[in-house]
Write a protein that binds this DNA or RNA. Structure first.
Length: 585
DNA sequence: CTGGGGTCCT
DNA sequence: AGGACCC
């Protein structure tokens, strides 16, 4: 008998579904419970538990229960749970960490190469597992330790409902009935724990079907979690809900090695007390900008601690005018205000776009220096040598991502330097200025070099002109960070499938202006404009496409593979000519 | 306000 | 080329 949470109590609830939920009100920005259940999706969010630490456990012999941390420069970036229990924090200075935990073992983790290899394996296992459940599940890599999938297409299919939860920790938030059962496993064996979840109201019909779908999704999540563990040895935490925002919040509810199912109607109270800053997409700058209208309207519990509820009590027009101060939101502050407010009530319409395998769009290596330590150009050049070596290895490792490894080469290289700005040093909190120079890069030639010394020399020949372009005054330069990035990978420039981001790059910029025009003309959201454009291309747009010598995607996708490859090979040459054109100006 | 990355949007 | 965001 399946042993998740007690559904028997809900049979009585179903009787009353005709009028039990009639208290819907959309008046003052509060979403109705039925409204929250109206997103018919099932989104899965995956977090690898303290990822760097699990990597180190696999790569070296570390005693069980030994508190350890990963160090970069003079800080530690993460630590295992034994160390956290002793009070070791993320992004803490090494000294502070030792104070909290004198026996702490710190492992140097500045070179991320091994972590990236583990991350790739995990993602590829995750992706394959999802596609095996249903080939049309959209899967996307977030970062090295985060992944998402849209399980919606797989929900209606029959699955084994008799899932054995006994080896997994499953937490269900907002279940109907007054309680849900959480099964946990510790050294003494399997035990079950009752998690109190108050559900005053009974469920309406769409809530009911929502809970059925999320349940099914949680079964799939469990399967996938086990597969990741079996194939890679990594434990993960999963969040299951109706949209990416809530799925991500869900995965953070109970950490490590769990599946967290968050029903949308439970999210309201959760979000209300949540710091605004914790909403994905709301960063430091945004909170700063909103601070004015928050102070004016909200009853602040603590200074500089704002919750989603606080923002919801602010008139929308105030929010809009605050967001005008953020340069990035300047021309879209109404839309942005809506997006943030919607997030505060748990609504998020963003889609998960399949990433076609997840090959990185950019590869970069960087090194940082303490203020005042890197003041000479020749020292900088010496430091760059190390970056060439690391970038070279990364570029070759990336081929393991690529579906067509012959095209797994970049076409652009960029050098970025962060310097201390003396003028800003006194007043601003971030006295740094970041500048970059880029140029085209013959990645194909680079990838064909066999000898690693030649590879380094090749990168150097590409990077030094960029360094020269900075025209650094030789005496007083104070570099605090240097990075080299490569982008424009050819295996990413054409998509095999139909999607809104299907167009090749020059065409994409056409899309941008198209979106802007529709936005100014009408109050359509960018997403609407994008969808409208992708479903049917106007005659005008098709003509423009032909004129610019681009290939209609729907035609391209029907060509034989070898022809497609040839067509793709042609592109770099065209780009090269464009580059030359701009160089002459 | 730290580190070594990444994404997307002007 | 640069900024804001994410981990």
């Amino acid at each position: 008998m399946p042993n998740y949470y007690d559904l028997s109590a809900e049979s009585s609830v179903c009787d009353s579904e005709d009028d039990a939920f009639s208290n819907e009100s959309d008046d003052d920005g509060t979403a109705s419970a039925e409204g929250l259940a109206s997103d018919h999706r099932c989104i899965l969010h995956v977090d690898v538990d303290c990822f760097y630490c699990q990597c180190e456990v696999q790569d070296r012999q570390i005693p069980k229960d030994k508190p350890f941390a990963i160090g970069q420069k003079h800080i530690i970036v993460t630590s295992n749970y034994a160390a956290r229990a002793m009070g070791v924090k993320k992004l803490q200075s090494r000294t502070a960490a030792y104070e909290a935990c004198p026996q702490l073992l710190i492992i140097e983790g500045s070179d991320l190469e091994r972590y990236r290899i583990h991350a790739r394996k995990i993602y590829q296992v995750f992706r394959a597992a999802c596609k095996r459940v249903h080939p049309e599940i959209a899967v996307r890599r977030g970062s090295m330790d985060e992944m998402m999938a849209d399980l919606s297409v797989a929900i209606s299919i029959d699955g084994d409902d008799r899932v054995d939860y006994s080896n997994d920790n499953v937490y269900i938030y907002g279940a109907n009935g007054r309680e849900s059962i959480a099964l946990t496993e510790d050294q003494t064996g399997v035990c079950s724990k009752i998690v109190q979840e108050f559900q005053v109201r009974s469920l309406g019909p769409s809530e009911w079907s929502c809970s059925e779908r999320l349940q099914r999704a949680s079964h799939i999540a469990l399967q996938i979690r086990r597969e990741i563990l079996q194939s890679t040895g990594f434990t993960t935490t999963m969040g299951v809900s109706v949209n990416p925002l809530l799925a991500k919040i869900a995965s953070g509810l109970k950490k490590p090695a769990t599946v967290n199912v968050l029903f949308p109607w439970r999210s309201q109270s959760l979000l209300a007390s949540m710091p605004l800053r914790m909403i994905p997409g709301v960063g430091r700058t945004t909170v700063k900008a909103l601070q004015h209208c928050l102070e004016k309207n909200a009853v602040s519990s603590q200074p500089n601690f704002w919750t989603c509820q606080d923002l919801l009590s602010v008139p929308k027009q105030d929010i809009v005018s605050c967001l005008e101060q953020v340069p990035l939101f300047k021309h879209s502050c109404e839309v942005q205000a809506d997006i943030i407010l919607q997030k505060c009530i748990g609504v998020d319409h963003s889609q998960i776009q399949d990433d076609e395998g997840g090959a990185p769009k950019a590869l970069s290596v960087e090194n940082s220096f303490r203020r005042g330590t890197l003041v000479r150009k020749d020292v900088l050049c010496a430091e760059l040598e190390e970056l060439y070596r690391r970038l070279s290895r990364l570029l070759h490792e990336r081929r393991e991502w690529s579906h067509s490894s012959r095209l797994a080469y970049p076409t652009t290289i960029k050098l970025t330097l962060r310097t201390v700005d003396e003028k800003l040093a006194s007043k601003k909190r971030r006295p740094f200025v970041t500048r970059s120079k880029q140029s085209s890069f013959d990645g194909l030639a680079f990838m064909q070099l066999r000898d690693s010394a030649q590879q380094v020399a090749f990168l150097k020949r590409a990077a030094l002109p960029l360094l020269h372009a900075f025209e650094l005054k030789s005496d007083v330069i104070d570099i605090t960070r240097a990075s080299i990035a490569t982008t424009g990978f050819q295996d990413l420039s054409a998509r095999p499938k139909d999607s809104p981001t299907y167009f090749t790059q020059p065409c994409q910029s056409n899309m941008s202006t198209f979106i802007e025009q529709t936005e100014h003309g009408k109050s359509r959201s960018p997403r609407d404009a994008l969808n409208g454009a992708s479903t049917k291309m106007s005659i005008h747009e098709q003509a423009s496409m032909f004129h610019n010598n681009k290939i209609d995607p729907s035609i391209l996708s029907q060509l034989p593979p070898d022809v497609i490859s040839e067509l793709r090979q042609v592109k770099p040459k065209k780009r090269q000519r464009i580059d030359d054109y701009f160089k002459r100006l």
